[in-house]
């Protein structure tokens, strides 16, 4: 059960700079923690995020273990035309 919250203004004027805020549910296990018996808890993080606007990449991020659980990213894009924003999160253990 992975959930994402994405907030984008529903409408914008041509040329407006709009803020996009995203939250993705994920534990972001760092790979630096140990169990009580001393075994390393394997890393399980989201490593890549991208936002495409009508197929064109407008923002991309590479994430490392220092990202908080349930990663939050807020960035901007210029409203150029009506269309679709596509978000992609990818990471360890085939998370995508």
């Amino acid at each position: 059960m992975a959930s994402a919250l994405i907030n984008v203004p529903a409408t914008a004027k041509h040329g407006d700079i709009v803020e996009i805020k995203t939250l993705m549910s994920h534990i972001m296990e760092t790979g630096f923690r140990h169990t009580e018996t001393g075994a390393v808890v394997p890393r399980n993080i989201i490593t890549d995020f991208s936002c495409r606007y009508n197929g064109v990449e407008v923002f991309r991020a590479e994430l490392f273990p220092a990202f908080s659980a349930n990663p939050f990213l807020a960035f901007f894009t210029v409203a150029t035309e009506s269309g679709t924003l596509e978000f992609r999160w990818a990471g360890d253990n085939g998370f995508s």
Binding site: Y53, E62, L63, A66, F67, P71, F75, T77, T80
Partner: peptide, 18 residues
């Protein structure tokens, strides 16, 4: 911590995270 790739389409050179 993180690398963030923006560009002219972003309109603003800004990113926020936790």
């Amino acid at each position: 911590v993180g690398n963030f790739y923006v560009g002219p389409r972003a309109g603003r050179g800004q990113v926020a995270t936790r």
